[in-house]
Structure formats: C-alpha cells, structure tokens
Write a protein that binds this DNA or RNA. Structure first.
Length: 278
DNA sequence: CCCGGAACCTGAAGGC
DNA sequence: TGCCTTCAGGTTCCGG
C-alpha cells in the first residue's frame, strides 16, 4: 500500500520525466475516481497545461500546473502510476487502468488500480488539502514536543492515532507497525499513556522508518510498483510488518498479528510490552 | 472534539 | 476441482 515512502519514491521517479511536459489529453475509464470538478470539466481543462512541479503532501501526489491549479492524485491501496512510451508497441498492456494522461513529450502516465479506490481532483489551490492533513513527519518543524502534545490529547490506541492523517500525514499501516516496533511500544497502548521517554523514542522511530523506506524505494508487499515497473525493496527490511508467524529479528519470538480498528497490526510481543494497554 | 465502525472495491487466499 | 467466504486497508461519513 502506498504510504509516504512509496509516494515520495513515485514523485522522485516522475519528476525528471514529467516536469516541464504539457498535458495533451486525459482519458478516464473509471469516472468515479474523479472527485472534482466533473469528469467532463477535468478532461476539458487539463489539456494544454504544463506540469511546473511535482510534489508530495502526506500520501497525496500533487502536479502543480502553469495555470496555478493543482492536479492531486491519491493511490489509496492498490493504485499505481506507470510511465509508458506512447509509440512502444512491444510493451505489455497495463491491467486495471482507470485513467491515462497523454503528454507532449511522447510519454503516457497510466493510473492502474485493481480495487478502484484511487482518486484525482483538480484544485484551484491546495488549502483544501492542507485542511485535512497533519504535519509532515520528515519536516524539520515536526518536533518531539509536537508529537507529545498531540498524543496527550488522544485516548485511542497509539497505532490508530499514528494512522490518522490529521494527526500526522503520510503514515499508514505498515510504517506505523515498524515505528512502534523500533520504539518498543505495543500497538494497543493508549496514545495519552506514553511516557516522555517513549514519545522521544517514537519520534525518532517514525523518522527513521520513513527515511529507510525512501532509501529502499518503498515496500512492494502487494500492488505497489515504481513508475518504471520496478519493485521497491523495503519489504525485505521490515522487522514486523506483514511478518506474521515469522520470528523477531531481535529476540526470535514469533511475530503476532492482532486487529486494531479492523487493521492488521504486526508486533513482537516480547520487544513491545503490553503493559498499561487500556 | 474524539472515538469506532461501515462503506467503498475486487483479486487472492483459505476452507470444505 | 470449484464454489464460497473472508481478508486486505486509505479515506470519508455517520452515529454515539
């Protein structure tokens, strides 16, 4: 599932190919993916505009256009963005296509999405996006004190709070599990119950797992692929995420899985003590 | 405001 | 082998 490191990798891969290119056309084969404006209006307004810059905010990918508007994409769980050359007759057809963007440099950007949860919007400005997202965990301005004060106001399990995009932007199920493992914190611990020491460890762990994820070009657990089709390698470095039944790399205890808010949470019962859970 | 659960989807995996 | 059920999890919406 694309989380911050996966979307950051996609952004990094797309930038050299697409920045400066001009949209020539859009074809939408799954209309419900377009949140705003209408499909017709988006298809009418996008062509002709140049991609000035590609950016990421949380798990959103943002194409800033020369007209000042922004095309905002979200891959949700199974979305991929793939680069294809328009006149390459030999390339394999892309499955589960929901949208195709044509560009004036001969490149096509294909949105492929097995479960069709991915979305796109053409926004006048990004304030709408900013309103629903918390701080960027890798920005310098995200401090231990920010984490401490926001955790202190939340009574839900720390795992659920970490995945809340309004609390912190970009963390999902996999990286939340990894951060909690590194910090030695059980996923069911109530957010407000963490000690100052644990908050310090968690802050460090969050930044570390995200940076490692980016360095390894994301985790290809299921559908995630880079725009060139390559897999990421972060899944090989996970300590707990999606490792149910396998043993802990630190203490050899079997990794367990338990549902937190209906999401599978993987953790080491020995390294992540269950003391003071609810 | 905060919390938890359902809905949105469909391929993959597991049970019988 | 094949049908059926369950699982996967990001976001939004809704009720408590």
């Amino acid at each position: 599932m694309p989380e911050l490191p996966e979307v950051e990798t996609i952004k990094n891969d797309l930038r050299p190919v697409l920045e400066g290119a001009r949209f020539t056309g859009v074809s939408i084969s799954w209309p419900r993916m377009v949140l705003q404006p209408s499909v017709d209006e988006l298809c009418r307004r996008l062509p002709g505009h140049v991609i000035r810059e590609i950016a990421r905010r949380g798990k959103y990918l943002i194409f800033r256009l020369d007209c000042g508007e922004s095309l905002v994409l979200h891959l949700r769980m199974t979305g991929s963005l793939l680069l294809r050359s328009r006149n390459d007759a030999h390339s394999e057809p892309v499955p589960y296509v929901t949208a195709v963007f044509g560009l004036d440099n001969g490149i096509e950007l294909v949105f492929s999405d097995r479960r069709k949860f991915g979305t796109m919007s053409l926004l006048q400005d990004e304030s709408e996006l900013a309103a629903k997202l918390g701080p960027e965990p890798l920005s310098r301005s995200f401090t231990v004190e920010d984490l401490r004060s926001s955790l202190s106001r939340r009574k839900a399990p720390v795992k659920a709070v970490l995945c809340d995009q309004k609390f912190l932007a970009g963390i999902g199920n996999m990286y939340a599990d990894e951060a909690l493992f590194l910090a030695g914190i059980h996923p069911l611990r109530l957010a407000s119950s963490l000690s100052q020491e644990e908050v310090v460890r968690l802050h460090k762990a969050i930044r570390r797992v995200l940076k490692t994820g980016i360095r390894n070009a994301g985790a290809s657990i299921s559908d995630y692929r880079r725009p060139g089709g390559q897999r990421g390698t972060q899944q090989l470095s996970f300590n707990v995420a999606h490792r149910g039944g396998q043993t802990c790399k630190v203490c050899a205890t079997p990794i367990e899985r338990l549902p937190v808010r209906n999401r599978g949470s993987y953790f080491c019962p020995r390294c992540q003590s269950a003391a003071t859970c609810s």
